[in-house]
Design a protein around this nucleic acid. Structure first.
Lengths: 193, 193
DNA sequence: TACGGATACATTCAGTCTGTATGTAAATTT
DNA sequence: AAATTTACATACAGACTGAATGTATCCGTA
């Protein structure tokens, strides 16, 4: 069976990414050895180190692929909402839906943060920046607007922790309600209730 | 120089804990090798594996010692507050003060979570349970009271993320204000402003 | 279409790390 | 004072990562 180089590369890379994803989700990054990954992918370590400079780079390739799928999932659901509040709540729902795909929470919210280097300001979480847009509309002209950046960071942390809690068996409805309560609390007084 | 066994053990254990803490903070758990730790502590790996069954256990001993110091720091500052709101804000300030000790944020909020096993419900974060008490007073008789547990989890996540952001050079005043805004948002309407 | 290089691996190897097993001197117990 | 336990130090085995090297296949070119 003759395959073009492009086909071979694509097949091998996705086999490695798929196998690595499975094992990273199952056992975590540190507990997953490259011999196990290549065995699961049906190739040798030579192939792995041909396509990726090291284990970390393979890991980040897995994470970025997954993050891209999450972004696509959410993008596809960017329905126009009637209000800033509705937009944020819809966004929350889409986010929780996207993170419900098996292994995503473990991969994106546990393993990936564990491997990020500590000091360097890590670049641009897309989920966080879209949250920031939503919050900026909610706070338009309000006294809290100068706190937009830190509030975005904190609410983003709440989102992520909610996703983790749901992934660990927590009641999704309750966490969605709690998120809604946090967001409603930030609304300017004149708009409440 | 004759030392009792107790003295020898204490000296060696604290030397190991101190050296390990320094290196774990500097380079993280995975990048810190036991040969480096024992070299920094002035002992051999035999001593390490005599006192701790493995590297992970040493790590958790470091983390628990640090967590104990944080708890003590905060405990010492448990001033009576005039209101539930004030108590929470004072608690936030005490928490940020405690986490300002060099390396604590990295150790307790980055390295430790990275090493926690995924599934098992990890037991009782003391900071979180005291936060829960504070929130329960704030929400006394309010419509949000049924959401106390999830709200505690989310607000706790916000606290931790704020500490991380401050540790990374973020403006503490801004994050304190953002935390205050989140908490104020949860207060029953009749108490606002 | 024959050839020279590039590509995509497979295999071997060196260095490092973890945990264990064994040896020993000092302290403690009897 | 002898026996035993404690607190280590040293030696060792297994595993893993990344680099070096070898090889078959593909691909552009003449």
């Amino acid at each position: 069976m003759a395959r073009s180089n492009r086909e071979r590369t694509d097949a091998t890379r996705t086999a490695l990414l798929d196998a690595a994803r499975r094992l990273f989700v199952e056992k975590g990054y540190a507990e997953t050895a490259t011999p196990d990954i290549v065995a699961a992918a049906g190739v040798t370590r030579g192939a792995l180190y041909h396509h990726f400079p090291d284990k970390k780079t393979l890991f980040w390739a897995v994470v970025e692929r997954e993050a891209g799928e999450v972004a696509a999932d959410i993008e596809a659901r960017s329905a126009e909402a009637s209000s800033a509040r509705e937009a944020l709540l819809q966004g929350a729902c889409a986010y929780f839906d996207a993170m419900a795909a098996p292994g995503r929470t473990r991969l994106l919210l546990k393993e990936a943060p564990a491997q990020t280097v500590v000091d360097s300001g890590n670049g641009e979480d897309p989920a966080e920046s879209s949250l920031k847009v939503g919050l900026s509309h909610l706070l338009e002209g309000a006294a809290l607007l100068p706190l937009l950046d830190p509030l975005t960071v904190l609410v983003s942390a709440a989102f992520e922790r909610a996703a983790i809690a749901i992934d660990c068996g927590g009641n999704r409805k309750n966490y969605e309600a709690a998120i809604a309560a946090l967001i409603d609390g930030l609304r300017p007084d004149e708009l409440r209730r």
